[in-house]
Each structure stands twice: as C-alpha cells, then as structure tokens.
Nucleic acid binder design. Structure first.
Lengths: 344, 344
DNA sequence: ATTAGTAATGTCAACGTTGTCATTTTCATT
DNA sequence: AATGAAAATGACAACGTTGACATTACTAAT
C-alpha cells in the first residue's frame, strides 16, 4: 500500500503528455498552456516561451479528441466518393486536399463503391466525428442522407454534377449540356449513325443521365442512336476494345461512338487501329473526361474535358465559405471543353 | 428569471441527441444505452429493443469524439502519401481502403507533396486524433517521424519499398531488384546503348535508388548507361515525349530506354511512332508500374508491373495484425513481374 | 499615490462517453 | 422456500480539453 498513484498505465513507459503535465512542468495553469498551444490572445511573451519550452521538453502533442469534444467542432472534413480506382476522383480529391490543407483541415476519406446504402453508412460513421463539413460526389442520395445532414446542420457541398438538386450547394458540370454538345457536334460533322458505349452498368447515375440526354438530343437533330453497349464491369481500355467490337458486330454501319469515359475510348481507338479500321475516316470516336494520355496518342482522342482538379478546388473553397455562412446556396457550373483532337 | 436551462444553444433547434437523451426517453441509465450502442455483452433483449427504439426516435448518433477520448483509442487510421495525382497511390489507397472499411476503420488522408518537412507536420496533425495506426509511403523520413511514432507507440506500416529500413514493418517491392532485372533484360536482349528517363527531379527518393541500382548493374553487365534525362516536373505523357526527344538529341545512338514510370514511357512510345521511329527495332522502351492502358496500345508497352492494389491490401492487413501484436516486425516483399509486351 | 482600465492569468465546470465496481435481478439448484 | 451464482443494470468518476467568469498584475492617467 505504499505506492498510490500513476501505477495505472503499464509499468514505466510514460503515457502521452497532457496539458496538465506541461502546466506542472512550467508552473502555470492548464488553461494557460491551452492558450499558448492555440495561439489564443492575451498571453505574455514570457509565459508563452516558458510553456513552449516545457511542451517541447515533454514532446507534448495536443489531444484533438478532447479539444474537439469540448468545442463541439473539429478540423475534419468528410469526403465521400464512390470510388478511387478510376482517374476522375483522385484528381478531384487532389484539388480538394490542396485547399483543405491550406486551411488546416483534414480530409477523412469515405468510399461508397457506388452503393447508396453504403453511402449512408459511411456518412453516419463520419458524422460521428463531428466533422466541420461534408463533401460528397453527386446529388442523388438516399433520403437518410439529407436527414442526417439536416440534423447535424453542417455545411455540405456536392460535386461532379450540376444537373441535380443539391442539398445545399453543388459544384461541377452539366452532364446534360455535355451530352447535347456532343450530339450537336456529331450532327454538325455529318455523322449519321451514332453509337454509345458505357461501363459498369452505368454507375454512377450521372452517366445514365448523360446518355439519356445524348439519345434525346440525337433524336432531335435527326440522327437517332443506332445502338449502345453498356459493359457490366468497370471501365478499362480492354473493356473498351471488347465493347466496341461487340457493338460493331451488331451494328457494323455505326460511324461514330460516344464513350462514357476515356479509358474505354482509348481502348477502342487502339483496337480499331490494330484491326485496320481508320479513325476517324471510317468511324469517329469521342470520349469523356479528357485524361492526359489521350493528348499524346498518335491519333489524339477527342473528348469532353472536365475540370476535375478545379472542381475539387472550388468544392473545397465553397465549403470553407459555407463554414462562415451556412445558409448560402450556390450552384457552380464550371463548364467543360470539347477537345476535338483527331478522332472525330 | 423564469427559464433556466437549455437556452444556451440557438433558440429552439434541438442540439444533437446524446446518450443522456436516449437514456431519459427510454428510462434506463446512460451506461446501458452505451452498452446497447456498442453491442456490449450483458444486455437483455428487452432493454436493447427499448433503447434502440428511443435512439431511433431521437435519431441518436454516438459521438465518437467522446468515446475515443474516454477509451484513448479510435477507429481512425492515418494514411500518408506523397501525392494523389499520379496513378500509383490511388491504386494503393484503394487496396488500403477496401481492407480498412471491412474492419470498420476510417482512413484519414494526408498528402505530403513529396515534402519531408510537410510529412512531419501532417503526421503530427494526425497523431493529435489518436489514430489506431499509421500507414505511410516509403521508409525514408525525418528523424522526428520516428520519434513521434515511438512516443505514441502505435502500429505503423510503411509501403512501396522494401529496400529501406522500416520503423516497424514494410510492404512493397524491391526497387533495386527491379532495376537489376531490367538491366539484365536489356543485356540479355542484346541492347548495347541504354538510356534512362525520369521525372520530377527524382521525387520520391526511391526512384533515384532504382536508377542508381540500374546504372550499377548496367556497368556490371558491360553495357554502361549512355545518358539520362530527368525532367524537373511531374511525369506525364507529354513530358515523356519531350524528355525522350531531348535525350535522343544528345545521344542519338541510344538503343533502349528505361523509364521511371509508364506515363512517360507511353508518351515516348507514341512520340517515337509519330515521328517514324520503329519500336522496338530501332529503340526499345520499358516503363515502370504497368498501368492498364499500356496493355492496350497498338504496341504493347513493356513494363515492370507492380502489385499496387495488393500492396494496399497487404499493408492494411498487416496494420490490423500489428494492432493485436504491436511488437511484430515484418518486411513483406510482394515482388514484381516484368511484362515484356512488344516495346522491347 | 490613487484610480480606472486593460492585459494576463487562474478556477471551475462542463463536453459525451466508458471502465470500474457496486447493486439488483434472474434462474437453476437444493 | 432457500441458496448461490451468473446475468443485468446502475452510480460514479474519469478522459484532456476549453468557455465563462473571477481574480490578479500591470499601465497610464489623474
């Protein structure tokens, strides 16, 4: 019964230093240490340096869990994307991160695998950490998502898509406008028998929206869609080659194809060239997203170039703005650009 | 002086429900609610359902900040990568996430921009959240990194590279072995005048390690490196074309090039074909990483195929294992595969 | 030297959980 | 019915921080 304190944690190894430890060592109060660590005002230079020295000596690291609990706010930002496999989300993420890091915020990553139910689960898990904001892809969610957001009332920005109805704000491009632009382009260039190729059963929904708009517009301009082929698996160059082959088997007279993504489009381009079909003379190709490699191919791939990095940047910036003014509502259409290339 | 409580938060809007609220509504103690929410043992079915009903009615979400503070442990995992722009880290991340999600863990993403000082800062910020583990790229860090890890004693797995000396465990491939394999391949195929192309001033260091091993081995097998060209900017297809052109300008008799990455290699491949040089007859090309698109090109790109997704998976699995047994030390060499393709 | 006003520091009580330990209930045995 | 053991529930005190408010130390004006 001699020893009475500090024998709780495992023998000897000093547990993580706390404010109290720093306070004791530097002979000031805990709150003063807290103020120094947070660069709060009203701290004398003398006290500050004394505290800093002690903190340094102990290797003190603030415990954000405690701080965030007390202040009911954190520097965490929930970032929810459907996937990180293909090239589009990493680039947006990159933009998001660059802005968040600047502002001292930390992204917590959630991946939904294009599964709406999972999205709800992921969001729930993230909200448990009281993030200061939420960034998520797309505007089409389970009702539970909106409820949760409302309850926590926390800023949210949805990115990718500007066609849908956002909970608060959205940043992206209009897939419908893009589809129309491509349809018009095909008509203008004199194509008569257009086809369409997609992947992964049109996940996410916005690719379906785009295709439907494409079909509608083609109808309007008098060159209705001849046929389409939607792969069941995620997009890839190889799948692009396969789906193209299948599509052309069924409808050999197709003279142009609009792809849901550049991976498939490139696969198709290479495949057609390999098998001796001339692009764009015999068949025109246009992809979607405008990935960098498409600019370097012997035949430059035509594509709808989406501003992915910028989208991330603007999304994050908008979130920061909303943190100050929650009620603001913004829909930011960043627009796209059609790179004509040589394949159409 | 009539009203006395609950008038703190903004008028009317109910703040987030807590355990206490659920407890009151269901007429049980807070700790019981806690137990139900955590699926702790020793809870009767009757109580469980009563609590669940109340929790549901209030839309209760546990506050992990409080829980984690109390238990001094979280389900957060710090994941620190140099970049998310190029194709390699997203794929690893993908693997990591798939395993973490399965285990109910959440990745917090930190990006260092290949900056060692920034890595320290990022790690510090993340440790403030008491993550249950840390995953970081590479084995070469500032001394402060190791100190922080030691102090928090927390499991860490370093991925990418298995040549260096890990803090605890590492998962990846040996860049040195890969470099040797490529050098040997070139010799074996009868190339006499090899060149090398890299990017971004050889960030990260492991690309430098690889090149040096490459040079050393070439020396050994009697076909010393003729020349190299390291771009100052990040890798891309376009840069690949430029650097190749520059290299060949200086040393037109180079008959094979080893690239630090596939983006540059593909850019080079396309560029050479565009400008009428035959690959591999006049010049052989081999890249690094084995990105998917390289398999689909008219001339299939030779490359060192790295198991990026698997690397992520094994890294995360290893972290989970270490969570149970902190002291375990493992170095897991996943190996690589050389895809010969048609460009060499 | 007194005063008033500001800057610097401190005390105390939360924030929402959960671990420990105490108490009560339940249930199979005798 | 009495007993004991196990299961179910609860009371209480932390976890490490910070906001509100109180106190003390300075500074400048009289």
């Amino acid at each position: 019964m001699t020893k009475d304190r500090a024998s709780l944690s495992s023998i000897d190894r000093p547990r993580r230093a706390t404010l109290r430890d720093v306070a004791r060592l530097s002979g000031v109060s805990e709150i003063s240490v807290s103020r120094v660590m947070r660069d709060a005002p009203s701290v004398s230079e003398r006290l500050r340096s004394r505290v800093l020295a002690a903190a340094n000596e102990l290797g003190y690291t603030p415990n954000r869990l405690a701080g965030a609990l007390k202040t009911a706010s954190s520097n965490l930002v929930a970032v929810i994307v459907p996937s990180i496999g293909n090239g589009v989300f990493p680039e947006v993420l990159n933009g998001i991160e660059s802005v968040l890091a600047e502002a001292g915020l930390q992204p917590v990553l959630g991946i939904t695998q294009y599964d709406k139910a999972r999205e709800v689960q992921v969001l729930r898990d993230m909200l448990a950490w009281s993030p200061m904001g939420v960034i998520m892809a797309g505007t089409d969610h389970e009702p539970a998502v909106r409820r949760m957001i409302d309850q926590h009332d926390i800023p949210v920005v949805e990115f990718m898509d500007v066609d849908g109805d956002p909970m608060q704000s959205s940043v992206g491009i209009s897939n419908i406008k893009a589809a129309i632009a491509v349809a018009d382009l095909l008509a203008e260039r004199g194509y008569k028998r257009p086809g369409y190729i997609g992947a992964w059963s049109e996940r996410p929904d916005r690719s379906r929206v785009r295709r439907e708009a494409f079909e509608r517009r083609l109808q309007e301009v008098g060159i209705p869609l001849v046929d389409k082929e939607i792969a069941l698996v995620p997009a890839s160059a190889e799948i692009g080659a396969q789906t193209t082959e299948r599509l052309l088997q069924r409808a050999p007279d197709i003279d142009a194809i609009f792809f849901a993504n550049d991976d498939q489009a490139l696969g198709a381009l290479f495949h057609l060239q390999r098998t001796g079909r001339r692009v764009p003379e015999e068949i025109g190709l246009i992809g979607f997203n405008g990935i960098e490699i498409g600019c370097a191919t012997p035949t430059i791939l035509a594509s709808v170039v989406t501003p992915r990095f910028q989208m991330g940047v603007e999304t994050a910036k908008l979130l920061l703005a909303k943190a100050d003014n929650l009620s603001s509502r913004t829909v930011m259409d960043l627009g796209f650009e059609i790179r004509l290339g040589e394949s159409i």
